[in-house]
């Protein structure tokens, strides 16, 4: 049965915060998260007529967000690397303000930094399962893998993260 195609504005209102959160957790950068959110919705708008099942709109949108996040983050990484190589010295980070120094010691920062050291696949699984509370089925659709693989990879990713934050006892 043919269902009405949802309007992009409606999708944006429903999911833009979720997409932004996902991108922010994935990149730990406000600028990149904004770029990912923007590109995700523009891509979604172009492909909206290809969406067959409206019930799967969330996973469909997040699989676009995931691909976009991986692409943009990789591009930014290469750009940073080239800039670093061309300038013959590491790019200096901004000097943190006193408030940021206090925040630095916060727990979320520790977890986020540990998350950033993980591989892209592991990071996405943890974001989907632990931070966005998606089901195993939804995560499997977003990542385009089987549910069994999601379970296995999730446990492995969690073990790696625990190790990074020093809780691997």
């Amino acid at each position: 049965m043919h269902q009405d195609i949802p309007k992009i504005e409606h999708l944006y209102d429903c999911y833009h915060r979720d997409v932004y959160h996902f991108a922010l957790y994935y990149t730990n950068s406000k600028q990149e998260a904004e770029d990912i959110t923007q590109e995700t919705f523009f891509k979604a708008m172009k492909q909206l007529d290809k969406l067959k099942d409206n019930d799967k709109v969330k996973t469909w949108l997040f699989s676009i967000a995931r691909n976009t996040a991986v692409d943009i983050h990789r591009r930014q990484k290469i750009k940073r690397l080239i800039t670093e190589k061309l300038s013959w010295q590491p790019v200096l980070k901004e000097v943190p303000k006193p408030l940021e120094i206090v925040e630095k010691n916060e727990q979320w920062q520790t977890v986020q930094e540990a998350l950033m050291t993980l591989k892209s696949h592991d990071r996405i699984i943890i974001i989907c399962r632990m931070l966005k509370d998606y089901t195993i089925q939804e995560t499997a659709v977003i990542l385009g893998i089987s549910e069994v693989k999601v379970r296995v990879d999730f446990h492995r990713a969690m073990a790696r993260l625990r190790k990074k934050v020093g809780r691997d006892d």
Partner: peptide
């Protein structure tokens, strides 16, 4: 651990940014 990350202070997108994209 993840509850702490869920509550990170800069989690929400800028209102201006959201309106602009819309």
């Amino acid at each position: 651990l993840f509850d702490a990350l869920k509550k990170r202070p800069d989690k929400e997108p800028d209102v201006d940014f959201s309106n602009e994209i819309r």
